[in-house]
Simulated assay, not measured.
Amino acid sequence: MANIPLEDIQNDVDTIVSEWIDLGLLKRGELFVIGCSTSEVAGERIGTSGNKQIAKELFTSFRKLEEKTGVSLAFQCCEHLNRALVVSEDVLERFRLTEVSAIPVPGAGGSMAAYAFQQMQDAVLVESIQAHAGMDIGDTFIGMHLKPVVVPIRLRQKNIGAAHVTFARTRPKLIGGERAVYSKDQAKSMLCD
């Protein structure tokens, strides 16, 4: 394992959370999916060295993101649980999701999802979601859990520990053709003439 101090990992994730908050793109009640390989954060190959302490540090910062923006967090499991997601019972009910029967553990689900499941008071596992935004830590591929249309977000901080991190939000599909109007201001000016 690479010798990456937990303090450095915490600083990386805190920087990312602050950037997300400052962007103002996240709205109360939206779903935010997190895919995370704690092995990759530690400098190891995905799925080989899960780390509960890293999961704990990350989870603390993700809770700050949740508190400051009002988003609901969803933690993606690894492929051993078919990339199911840890969410709260409230999210299960609010979004009418399909619950599945499994409890994530480090060897089947991943350390991050397992830690989130233990820490969330009303955690359940769901089969899939369509999140409004998300973060992929260590190339875990969260795309299957994002709404169409996905738009990449570029933040200054591109790593957490040794893990590559990517960010995305979604937007509604643009429909119509060359006569379609997408800006409310433009539509308003056309209606006022």
Rank of each mutant, 00 (worst) to 15 (best):
D139T: 11
H132V: 01
I137C: 07
T166W: 00
F167D: 01
I160H: 05
M144K: 14
G138E: 05
R179T: 13
I137F: 10
I160S: 07
G138F: 05
G138M: 06
L174P: 01
G138Y: 02
R169L: 06
P152R: 10
T166Q: 08
Q130M: 12
G143R: 13
R171Q: 15
V149T: 13
R179E: 13
E127D: 14
F141W: 13
R169A: 06
K158Q: 15
F167V: 03
R154V: 13
H132I: 00
G177Q: 10
I142T: 10
V151H: 10
P148W: 12
I129S: 02
R154F: 11
A168H: 05
T166A: 11
I142P: 00
A180N: 09
T170M: 10
G161C: 09
V126F: 04
L174V: 07
I175N: 11
E178T: 14
G177Y: 10
G176W: 07
G176L: 07
Q157H: 10
G134Y: 00
F141H: 15
Q157G: 06
G176V: 06
L155P: 03
K147H: 09
A162W: 00
T140C: 09
I137W: 06
M135H: 04
V150G: 05
I129T: 04
A163Q: 02
P148E: 15
K158S: 12
I129Q: 03
P148M: 14
T140L: 06
R179C: 05
V165M: 03
G177H: 13
R169G: 03
L155Q: 05
A162D: 04
Q157N: 14
I175C: 09
K158V: 09
G176Y: 07
A163V: 05
M135K: 02
V150I: 15
V150H: 08
F141Y: 15
R156W: 07
G177C: 11
I129D: 00
G143S: 14
R179H: 15
T140V: 13
L174D: 08
A163S: 07
T140M: 09
L174G: 03
P172T: 06
G176A: 08
P152T: 11
M135Y: 04
